[in-house]
Simulated scan of single mutants.
Amino acid sequence: MTDQTKTDTPPDRLSVHPKSAHFDVEVLKRGVGIRFKGKQRTDIEEYSISEGWVRVQAGKTMDRHGNPLTLKLNGPVEAWFEDLGEDAPVAKAG
């Protein structure tokens, strides 16, 4: 278990793709809730709280390697661990 999974808030940056340097299976197993621009989202591929962006899949479009194309959207990002329940601490910028 990494130091990040022992905390009550998710890491600043996380990706669901195993080839990414920001992929962490232990964190993802806990379930991470994401709120982007005030709306809870379930379609986030990657996020960065401090830089204020998320990546979402662009429809069913694939690149030449068969990976989904993603769009980078800018705005306030908040993340929390879903396994901590309703009163989970929220990680957010600022």
Rank of each mutant, 00 (worst) to 15 (best):
L84D: 04
F23G: 07
P68M: 04
G38F: 05
K37R: 12
P76M: 02
E45L: 05
S50T: 15
Q40H: 08
E46A: 03
M1F: 08
R64L: 07
P18Q: 08
A21F: 09
I34V: 15
S20M: 04
D87Y: 03
E78I: 07
K60C: 04
K60P: 00
P89G: 12
G31V: 05
T9R: 14
D24V: 09
A79M: 04
G31R: 13
H65C: 02
Q40S: 11
D24R: 13
P11V: 08
W53R: 03
E51G: 05
P76H: 12
S50V: 14
S48A: 11
S20I: 01
Q57S: 05
M1K: 06
L69T: 03
P11S: 06
H22W: 10
S50I: 14
M1Y: 09
K60L: 11
T70N: 09
V16A: 06
E26F: 09
E51N: 15
V27I: 15
P18M: 06
D24T: 08
D83I: 11
G66M: 07
Y47N: 09
R13Q: 13
I34C: 03
D63L: 00
P10N: 10
G94E: 12
L71H: 05
H22V: 00
K72I: 07
P11H: 01
P68Y: 07
E86Q: 13
P18F: 07
G85E: 11
K6S: 12
V27C: 07
D83M: 11
P10Y: 02
D12C: 10
T70H: 12
D12T: 13
E86N: 09
E51S: 15
D8L: 12
G66E: 13
R35H: 01
A88K: 07
R41N: 02
Q57F: 03
W53A: 05
R64H: 11
V56Y: 01
E26I: 13
N74M: 08
L28R: 15
Q40P: 00
E86W: 03
N67C: 08
R55E: 01
R55I: 00
V54S: 02
T2H: 02
G38D: 08
Y47C: 11
R41I: 01
R13W: 04
L71C: 02
T61F: 07
T7N: 11
D12R: 08
L84Q: 08
P10A: 10
L28P: 09
E45H: 05
T61W: 08
L14F: 00
E46Y: 00
S50A: 14
E86G: 01
R41Y: 01
K19A: 13
S48C: 15
